[in-house]
């Protein structure tokens, strides 16, 4: 029963290229950066490390082949959002370049790797989980205040510095909402982290990010999201029918942590806490210093190397 809404006129490829040419920087990035090693591969592109020749600073470069992008307009969205929403818990966007058929986006590089390496290779305690949740919630409060929904919160999109700093990345699928259009319906995200209202194709808003944060908290407890052993379609079915997922050995968690999870993973969107409310939750008072993440990061990198 989605309200009748005028369909957004789809931009043609030429219009998209025109817009990109306005946004991107002039010049050949090959002259400005020395590409080093490949560090990531995602649906939207490949990520490399690189050295900025002039300063010696290490950066990350995300390369996307425009002809392979099913939804090019999302790329423009990503560039604009990252450029206009600078925050200590958001990976800093530096510049972007058109290189033939490819778009290169240069960003701040965080050598600690992604949170996925840490959750799959090490064991986190509640103090460390609380610290990560607080940092991500700070980014979400900032984004939601600026009418941006990330829509793809998961450990893969959380990058870590060697000092334990925690930053959100990959705005390729975010949505900018407005008073006229404060809700969305398109199914966007990663199935296992999707909120029930997204899966059941209802109108959704910023609180989908809070649900995904709750699933990410389960990753930090169990090493992976619920239903990852199932295929994606079945996982969507289970999210739609089960609602709040079971947490193995939940009784081993502290009551305050259990309550924090309940506030993130409430199927009733109105009851589900916002980022602002969660930042006041007592669980975050258990947070240990970010430096306590350093041993986990080192251990995760060792384990990844040995694979």
């Amino acid at each position: 029963n989605t309200a009748a809404r005028p369909k957004k006129k789809k931009m043609s490829d030429e219009e998209i290229m025109e817009k990109l040419r306005i946004i991107v920087a002039v010049g050949d990035p090959n002259k400005k950066y020395t590409k080093m090693e490949k560090i990531g591969q995602g649906a939207s592109g490949t990520v490399y490390t690189a050295i900025e020749i002039a300063t010696g600073m290490e950066v990350a470069i995300k390369q996307m082949n425009l002809s392979q992008q099913p939804k090019k307009e999302l790329i423009i969205n990503e560039l604009l959002v990252m450029r206009e929403n600078k925050h200590p818990n958001i990976v800093n966007y530096l510049d972007s370049y058109l290189v033939g058929e490819e778009l290169w986006v240069t960003m701040e590089y965080l050598p600690g790797g992604s949170l996925t390496d840490v959750v799959t290779e090490t064991c986190m305690d509640e103090g460390q989980i609380a610290a990560v949740c607080r940092e991500v919630l700070q980014a979400l409060e900032f984004l939601h205040y600026n009418h941006v929904i990330h829509r793809d919160i998961k450990s893969d999109n959380i990058l870590l510095g060697m000092d334990g700093s925690v930053k959100l990345t990959d705005f390729g699928f975010c949505a900018q909402i407005s008073p006229e259009q404060s809700k969305r319906t398109t199914m966007v995200g990663t199935p296992y982290w999707m909120a029930p209202e997204v899966v059941t194709r209802k109108q959704y808003g910023p609180k989908v990010d809070i649900w995904s944060l709750g699933i990410m908290a389960i990753e930090m407890i169990e090493g992976e999201p619920p239903y990852l052993n199932e295929n994606p379609l079945r996982a969507l079915y289970l999210i739609a029918t089960n609602g709040k997922p079971e947490i193995k050995e939940k009784e081993k968690l502290s009551p305050v942590f259990q309550d924090f999870l309940d506030k993130c993973l409430d199927v009733d969107v109105d009851k589900r806490f916002s980022a602002c409310e969660l930042l006041k939750h007592p669980f975050l008072k258990l947070a240990r210093p970010l430096a306590s993440l350093h041993p986990l990061i080192v251990a995760a990198k060792e384990a990844a190397k040995s694979h």
């Binding site: 939207s44 995200g189 990663t190 199935p191």
Partner: peptide, 19 residues
Amino acid sequence: SKKYERKKRYTVVGNPYWM
């Protein structure tokens, strides 16, 4: 199967091919 496992974590937009 490692490739399949990695693809499970890919982001989807609209109706993915497997729906």
